[in-house]
Design a protein around this nucleic acid. Structure first.
Lengths: 201, 201
DNA sequence: ACGGTTACAATGCACCTGCATGGTAACCGG
DNA sequence: CCGGTTACCATGCAGGTGCATTGTAACCGT
């Protein structure tokens, strides 16, 4: 077993280059030569780690999705310390609204991939909306937050959670396109959460 | 003035070919030769009507946006006959949820273009979210619908309208990607409208 | 020390791309 | 009938693409 190198680190570096290129010029600007140049390596190295271009971008996208999920989970853990369900709910929804540079990159990348996902089911599958567990978790938060506000329980927690995430992703698209600032998006999301947690008459 | 042909009709035909190709294989699959083949004409004809590939796709996208706007307006006019503000509100939000084949095509196309818009400000500008007039109009509908339900007026009509459209576009993305059926999306949207129109306690 | 495996690097190749060019046929005003 | 404009079509070209191939240097186990 000669010439031991850290494959994970190499692939990560290449995926990072794919991210940069995609954010800067769309997925169609991702070519083997450009990725190599961006990563500061030779094209042969890219070929050595990925059999085909499709493999390369698929791995890069998969890594981005994992990074985004990790951000949401980190948000939950960070807010979890406070215990207040409403705070946790807000914080974990904020997670996809790109409050920092890295988040904005991931958001832009996701939207860029959306275009490809329309015609590529494999991509569409990777970008599937919040899984069932996340939806249930969020629904629980909403129920708890309503209770904490003294509002009566409603049976629509799951739908309400679904709406929250869909709205958040919609806002995320606007942020990625520069149509909204992250703060403005956050304000809209806050307003919606207020509406959801306020009991109907 | 010899050889009179209908330019508008020719361009429309070519734009239609661009739509089909984009929906089927993404924007990057739109090449001059493929567009010509799809439209059943020679590549020279495509070049005759568009100076550059960028012009071609820009025109095709602009036509799609106009078609979508026309759909929304048509929805408003159709529902306007009933007079009931809540009905009009629902109908015009449904308009982007692709209940028929043509709507689904337009929706898919829009999402495909989203990817390009991340790195192309010109595209992003064309896809700008609902203009101010539409937002004001929708806010008016919400206020009227609330009044019709006997709910007290709130000052947040514009934000509520913003949320409605953002949620609708988010649902539209899911529909375009096949993650939701149009009916399921409609149900979610209905639920949200109910929440918005119900007065808080 | 050395054979074998790994990790690249360099280059070549067939294909496809947008766009430029030159030719041709149709048509219409005079 | 005819000069001029329009509407193409066919082809050529330089450049870029993904991928295959070949070469080479480094390293490890034995």
């Amino acid at each position: 077993m000669p010439k031991v190198v850290d494959h994970e680190e190499r692939r990560g570096r290449l995926a990072e280059a794919v991210w940069s290129l995609t954010v800067r010029g769309g997925l169609e600007s991702v070519t083997l030569r450009r990725v190599a140049a961006e990563a500061g390596v030779s094209m042969g190295q890219v070929q050595h780690y990925y059999a085909t271009r499709a493999d390369l971008v698929a791995d890069a996208v998969a890594r981005a999705v994992r990074a985004l999920d990790a951000r949401i989970e980190a948000s939950i853990r960070a807010a979890g310390a406070e215990g207040d369900p409403e705070t946790i709910l807000r914080k974990c929804l904020y997670a996809i609204l790109a409050r920092d540079e890295e988040g904005l990159r991931l958001l832009r990348l996701s939207v860029a991939v959306l275009g490809q996902a329309v015609s590529d089911p494999a991509m569409a599958a990777v970008l599937a909306p919040g899984d069932d567990a996340l939806l249930s978790f969020t629904a629980g938060l909403i129920a708890a937050a309503r209770a904490a506000r003294g509002a009566p329980a409603r049976g629509d927690d799951r739908v309400a959670a679904d709406i929250c995430w869909t709205l958040a992703t919609g806002l995320g698209v606007d942020v990625a396109l520069g149509h909204r600032s992250p703060d403005a998006a956050k304000a809209v999301l806050d307003h919606h959460i207020d509406t959801v947690l306020t009991q109907p008459g």
